[in-house]
């Protein structure tokens, strides 16, 4: 894909978003008290410096989603999403994992439709949160893949990178809104990127987080480690780590009745909840919190690497930031690493 840079002025970017509302439901992360929350675009836009509180998973499979009325054939059509302000930690690893789950083998049509039709306008991080550690997974704080368009703040506007045919088409359809980029802008753009990488490198270097190549073996050899019971003791099973994680995908199908007859829906579920593995007789493979905590890590650092050679973690730090019990993935791996060295 050609990665040439274009430039779009801020007011033209608003025009672009306005144009996109014709075909898309446009969402962007809006700031409230230094955090960003996905909000529907209604004419005002401000750039988000870092990731939103929740991942973009909600634009792929809704938290509660109709599967449909059964014993009937009926499909509903709604506008796809245009996701503005997704960060690298929403895309790299995350979409690879979600695509494997929902598209490999039996295809989940709802998901496929979202992936095919959604437009992703991602953006560079221009600041970092205390919990950010994407670099530990080799993910840069600016998207390098899996976007249609990527924007990077520049003077009075944004440097725009095209990442897909669809992105190219959008630029072509709106070509009056774009300008060629100047070499000063290009230099400024590169400088900003290298500055944020430096800042993040420093932050990650202070974590004692093991090399990513070691995580699989640390996990595999760490089932009996004392870190699981000691950390899990504090877990209150709120599920924040699951619901906000860009790679979590587990769900529960449910059946109910509605005015049209019988209805099946799907709701996000997760392995930190007590009854996740409970069977009717009462047995439950993950009956203790320590088993459940460990299970989440097995899935992300052993199962997915063995299936698709990808860690199901993007270093977004959401599970760390959102945990009321301060269970910290970065510290758990530092502990496993320490305990396995001695």
């Amino acid at each position: 894909m050609n990665h040439t840079l274009d430039f779009i002025e801020s007011n033209n970017f608003l025009k672009l978003l306005n144009n996109l509302t014709k075909a898309y439901q446009v969402f962007f992360p809006a700031e409230t008290k230094k955090n960003y929350f996905w909000q529907s675009y209604t004419g005002n836009f401000a750039f988000n410096n870092y990731r939103a509180v929740t991942s973009i998973r909600q634009f792929l499979t809704s938290a509660v989603e109709p599967i449909g009325d059964y014993f009937k054939t009926k499909t509903e059509n709604s506008k796809p999403f245009c996701i503005v302000g997704a960060k690298a930690c929403d895309l790299s690893n995350a979409l690879k994992v979600q695509d494997y789950v929902f598209l490999e083998g039996d295809v989940d049509e709802n998901y496929k439709k979202m992936r095919q039709q959604n437009l992703i306008i991602s953006s560079d991080c221009t600041a970092i949160k205390e919990t950010c550690f994407c670099l530990a997974f080799g993910i840069k704080p600016y998207p390098e893949e899996l976007f249609d368009l990527n924007i990077s703040p520049a003077e009075n506007g944004y440097a725009v990178r095209i990442g897909s045919d669809r992105g190219e088409k959008i630029v072509a359809e709106n070509k009056d809104l774009f300008k060629d980029i100047t070499w000063q802008m290009r230099e400024e753009h590169e400088r900003k990127r290298s500055d944020i990488v430096k800042k993040l490198t420093l932050q990650v270097s202070q974590l004692n987080f093991p090399q990513k190549e070691l995580l699989y073996d640390l996990m595999k050899n760490g089932y009996g480690d004392g870190v699981w019971p000691s950390e899990a003791l504090r877990c209150v099973e709120c599920g924040a780590c699951i619901m906000n994680c860009p790679t979590c995908h587990c769900f529960l199908l449910f059946d109910t009745k509605d005015e049209n007859g019988y209805f099946k829906g799907r709701i996000w579920d997760g392995c930190q909840y007590k009854n996740f593995t409970r069977v009717a007789g009462g047995a439950s493979a993950l009956r203790f919190r320590e088993y459940r905590l460990r299970n989440r890590y097995i899935k992300k650092f052993e199962f997915f690497p063995s299936r698709i050679n990808t860690y199901a973690c993007t270093g977004c730090g959401r599970c760390v930031e959102d945990c009321p019990a301060k269970i910290d993935l970065r510290k758990i791996f530092a502990t496993l690493d320490k305990n396995q060295k001695h």
């Binding site: 789950v101 929902f102 989940d108 769900f251 579920d269 997760g270 593995t277 069977v279 097995i298 063995s306």
Partner: peptide, 19 residues
């Protein structure tokens, strides 16, 4: 083997054990 299953298709995550 039997475990809690929801989708039956390897997507919902409930019945995964290890790999």
């Amino acid at each position: 083997m039997e475990k809690n299953m929801s989708c039956g298709l390897g997507k919902c995550g409930h019945c995964r054990l290890g790999k």
